[in-house]
Structures are given as structure tokens and as C-alpha cells.
Amino acid sequence: MTTLKSILILCAVLGSATGAAAAQATVHVEPASFQGPRPLADQTAKAAIRDYIESWQSLNAALDGNRADLLDADFVGDAKDKLMAAIQEQSRLGIRTHYEDRAHDVQIVFYSPEGLSIELTDTVDYDVQLLDHDKSQGMQRVHMRYLVVLTPAELRWKVRVLQAEAE
């Protein structure tokens, strides 16, 4: 936990789906705050947070390109189903959405005793831009707290729940 106890600033390069632009999102990790019977190893926590941050890249690429297949590597379960449904709807309507995360403030809040789930909160700053048949309909800067549940897959942690929490 020593690594996590100190505030850690990571820089993750989040490429845009089009490859036209690449931006850096700052990642701020708060010390984990949970009570549970299972200790969380530093390595596990780091891997889970790394995989979660990377999932924003595939999320953006999938929603920007309307390509549901790009979700496979990072999403599973309901989170994947909901994003796939959104992509299908976007494709039907001729819409694309471009998400660009700028900052994350992450804290692990639950590690289930059998080791099959890690829950974290993430206060994210991101831009969302909507394009209708490639014509921009506007852009917004968003500051939201997200609840995220990650579960382990063969090679990495995958996002199972990604849900913005109303203030």
C-alpha cells in the first residue's frame, strides 16, 4: 500500500480513435479506502487502475468509430452490453460521439473477499463531442464521479460497471 498511500500522478496517453490527435489524461490515485477480509496487493491495485484507465481509450475509439468490437478487450457484462447498445443506436442514427478524458481522480473503495471484483470511484474530467453525419453538433466539458466495478479476465481487469453518479 505504500505506493498507493502517496498520491500518485500518472500520465496515460489516451489516443483518439481517429489517430488524429493524442491527449494526455492525468491520473490521480487516492489511497484505497475499504474494509474487507482480503488484502489488496499493490500489484493488483496498480493493474486494475491501469486497465481501467486504458479502457477509456477503447471506449472512445468504439463510440467515435461506432465499432463495438473495440470494447471486447476492456469491457464485460452489463457495461459492455450497454455500450454496445449505444453504439448500435449511434450507427442507426448516423451519430458519433467523441469522448476525451482529461483527468481522473481514482480511489479503490471495495475489493470483494473472493477476489472477483474491485470497485472504484473515479472523478473524471472529460470532453464529449457529438457529430451527426460528421458534422459537429457541439461539445461539452464534463466533471462527473463514476462508480466502476472491475472483474478479472484471463489477461487483465475488465470494466463490468461504468456508471456516472449524480451529485
Binding site: K82, A86, Y99, L130, D132, Q137, A164
Partner: peptide, 13 residues
């Protein structure tokens, strides 16, 4: 006009 509602779970037009 056209109204767009977009989130990570659903999109409406």
C-alpha cells in the same frame, strides 16, 4: 430543430 441526448449507455435523436 434536432435534439440529441447522448450518454455512455444510450443515445437519442
Amino acid at each position: 430543430g434536432t435534439l440529441y441526448i447522448a450518454g455512455l449507455g444510450q443515445v437519442l435523436k
